[in-house]
Simulated assay, not measured.
Amino acid sequence: MLTIWHNPRCSKSRQTLALIEAAGKPVEIRKYLDDVPTAAEITGMLNQLGLDDPRALMRRGEAIYKELGLKAVNASDALLKAMSKHPKLIERPIVSDGERAIIGRPPEAVKTLL
């Protein structure tokens, strides 16, 4: 089963979910803005994505990124904590099969998991 960290207000997230559903794949939808991932869950997703730097999973254009001064932060733990406290900072959508994950930007990127 696939899991999508989903924001229904995001067009890319909706398009990615539509691709999964069109492929007939069972999917668990996690509205990550409401069901906020812990720092440990974000770390697990980074591992599935094959990423070492939490900043690679951050939406650096968000106002909260600038407000918190995250550009100057280099400690991974601090970045993970910021994402867990402010889930708007997490890039979306993210789709996982439990072993591998893909950021659905563009939405077609998810096809490698289908």
Rank of each mutant, 00 (worst) to 15 (best):
L2E: 00
T3V: 14
I4M: 09
I4F: 04
I4L: 12
R9G: 14
C10L: 05
C10R: 00
S11L: 06
S13Q: 05
R14W: 11
R14Y: 08
Q15F: 09
L17I: 12
A18N: 09
L19Y: 12
I20S: 00
E21T: 11
E21N: 03
A22F: 10
A23D: 02
A23M: 02
A23G: 10
G24W: 13
V27T: 11
E28T: 15
R30S: 05
V36C: 10
A40L: 00
G44H: 08
M45Q: 15
N47E: 13
N47R: 14
N47Q: 14
L49K: 15
L49S: 06
L51P: 06
D52W: 09
P54H: 14
P54M: 11
L57V: 04
L57Q: 08
R59M: 00
R59L: 01
G61T: 13
A63V: 11
L70Y: 02
K71T: 10
K71G: 12
K71L: 12
V73A: 15
A75F: 08
S76D: 10
A78V: 03
A82Y: 00
H86T: 09
H86Y: 13
L89T: 03
I90H: 04
R92E: 05
I94M: 13
V95T: 14
V95W: 05
D97R: 07
D97E: 11
E99T: 07
R100D: 12
I103V: 10
I103R: 06
G104V: 06
R105A: 03
R105M: 09
P107F: 15
E108Q: 06
V110D: 05
L113N: 04
